[in-house]
Amino acid sequence: MAQTTAVYVKKKRKLKPFDIVNAIIFIAISIVILLPIWKVLVDSFDATSGYGLSFLPRKFTAEAYRMAISRADLYRPFLISILVTATGTFVGLMLSTLGAYVLIQWEMPGRNFLSYVLLFTMLFSGGMIPTYIVMMNLHLTNTLWSVILPMGINVYNLVLMRNFFEGIPASLDEAAKIDGCTPMGIFFKVVLPLSKAALAAIGLMFAVSYWNDYTNFKIYITNNSLFNFQMKLRSMVMDSDLPMDDGSLSPNTLQNAAIIIAMIPFMIIYPFCQDYFVQGVNVGAVKE
């Protein structure tokens, strides 16, 4: 794809040497980034895969993907991942927006106190064992809540969200107040609709961290049927705990297919929210 667009650049008028050099640089960068991913992709289709400098499948097979969608022990973790990511992103966004909205109420008594309550958690943490004991006393271990809830509160994201809300003109707020809106009403009717970009951006950040979560699952979940895709992926990549013993696939093929499958959701989602995303982060972190 990169090469065709480069040709397109060349057709433009007023083409300077710099633009060509620039395009070449980015084609090079893209190749450097894509090469390892391409190799993984190729190996996931290559029945003979193993080592070697081949960049095209030597013996093409889509068996690994067929296996992934037809076998419960492969697609179930995938569905769990989706469930956790969706719920977690929702919880995370809810907490971040609520918290952020309260933190921009400058004249609210105790606002600064509350923001320092949040800041303090970025510095000190009790560590894994005390956290585990708390989770166990709440009877959350071995439920998906144990992986959803602790990551739902993310102060870094909350701060980004707050910065974004600051950018919303206060006059809108005032107008709504005069119209007799309750704070909740303003929040849902004025603030949230204006923050789609930030919601997309921070939502994506939450989604990435939920999707890639491994540590929490390892600690809190002992029930095999609640493992997520990253757990499965890691046990396949690190421990080669592969669910098949036949000659049609080499271990590598399935491992590589799993790596690609783990990336697919974001490859699909990302282009859709790229614009929102860039805009959202822009407004949230930079403009004041």
């Binding site: 894994m128 064992i129 585990y132 004991i133 166990m136 390892k218 600690i219 979940i221 002992t222 029930n223 095999n224 493992f227 757990m231 046990s235 690190m238 421990d239 705990d241």
Partner: peptide, 22 residues
């Protein structure tokens, strides 16, 4: 039966034995 992930079993023992009531 409680069956933690095999590769982190030792870690789970450590955690489990911290709360002796359970």
């Amino acid at each position: 039966f409680i069956r933690p992930d095999h590769s982190s079993y030792a870690e789970h023992i450590g955690i489990t034995f911290n709360d002796k009531e359970k």
